[in-house]
Design a protein around this nucleic acid. Structure first.
Lengths: 234, 234
DNA sequence: GCCATAATTAACCGTCTGGTACATTTCGCT
DNA sequence: AGCGAAATGTACCAGACGGTTAATTATGGC
């Protein structure tokens, strides 16, 4: 990628290719052509399509149709379908991890911090179903594409070290029991938060939709917090 | 999930279509033609292929090639691709749920029973990755096919009632706290056991393979048991 | 032995789909 | 203005893929 200062507007709002645009944030403002905007637009649509239909299920023609540009441009910028998928996956990870960085835990007491981390993660996953689905898809492909992205791997170690400091503080304070690897705490939080979104459809299909209601989600959110806090308690 | 010589026995007893087979369980033993065997063979291969490649990723020609029979036969018995997928999904569920019924919990004290249920579920999921993958795929398709199967839905309510009696006993004995819906306990156990298999690839890709080693899995198994027991403890 | 039906074979087909060839326009620069 | 490079539009293609046509063989009951 190495695109430099690209404003990565994955969402709808992005630089327009109108006659002129006096905005400052957009690079090359005023241009009739807007390559970076086109790239971003393609990525956003691709993310949506791959997330909905899977890698082999997504159709390049369909992606192209939903884009502001043409199929030709997709190949021009991304080469082929798999590369596009990989770029979309990377973009999704970047966007999500970026959201996670806003979370400040160091000023809170360990238990409160952990509580907040759990609830944040739960909500965060819930609010990013497209990302969750992409990860599911990636798992079905045995992580073959994630493997190719050096960029993504580095992003994730940070999440662990965040827990590491938090947990150490808790142990020092005597409120957390010793001997748990931070990675396993992360695993625990992830497992429940992820499953809640990833398996929502089959679960509610098999056992009824009650856990997907506002009340149900509230209860699960509380359960996850409770389970994690009790897990680390002395 | 050894992919070698197929002995899957998905349906009623199947038999080889060799020159002759003097087995007793097999219907129409000694026949040159063996329709049920062919059906079962197709289903077994289809399950494997769909589980590996997804619904749109799986190729009918590939399935046919791996079968003892021809593509024509697949359409003869199953109609089209989606129907075959549905039947494979049903067969997978049937096989898995069947294994679950062997678990006897009523004679154990509540805590031991729950412990055993958790460990059983954890192991069971771990030992049925193809099934897990099919469920993932089904979730990506929004449960569209699971929805069509009345058969599967009925199978699953049993799992809940098993927990229900177990939990009630625990509450009566004063070892479990009150006010938890059995469904949420099932959710908790499922979430962790499922995630452990479903997200194994991406997780170990991002955070290292240590949780997938024998030791790592042992630790996680203990964690899940611990988390559930602590969750329901008074 | 004969027949209706189930099971099976092999070649074939129309369309969908990822990917391209080639001509054309737009842009930054001088 | 004019030039080389980047960006784009149009039309197209070769192969893959789900599904089928039509003819053939096996099977069990009578």
């Amino acid at each position: 990628m190495a695109g430099g200062v690209i404003a990565f507007a994955l969402e709808k709002g992005m630089s327009m290719s109108g006659t002129q645009a006096p905005d400052k944030g957009s690079p090359r403002a005023g241009w009739k052509q807007d390559p970076e905007g086109v790239r971003a637009n393609i990525l956003a649509i691709a993310l949506e399509e791959f997330s909905t239909n899977g890698l082999s299920g997504a159709r390049m023609d369909e992606i192209a149709a939903k884009t502001k540009t043409s199929k030709r441009m997709i190949y021009y910028y991304f080469g082929d379908k798999e590369s596009l998928y990989l770029k979309a996956l990377e973009a999704a990870y970047r966007k999500v991890r970026q959201g996670e960085e806003e979370l400040a835990l160091d000023h809170l007491p360990p238990k409160d911090a952990l509580e907040r981390l759990v609830e944040f993660t739960f909500d965060h996953h819930r609010n990013n179903p497209a990302f969750i689905r992409l990860v599911m898809i990636e798992n079905i492909h045995h992580g073959r594409y994630l493997e190719q992205s050096d960029e993504i791997k580095s992003l994730n170690r940070a999440a662990i070290s965040k827990i590491e400091t938090l947990y150490s503080r808790g142990v020092a304070d005597g409120v957390f029991r010793m001997g748990i690897e931070p990675l396993r705490i992360h695993w625990l939080i992830s497992a429940m938060s992820f499953f809640n979104v990833s398996n929502a459809m089959t679960f509610s299909m098999l056992f009824g939709p009650e856990l997907q209601t506002a009340d149900g989600q509230g209860a699960l959110r509380g359960d996850v917090r409770e389970a994690v806090l009790r897990f680390v308690a002395v």
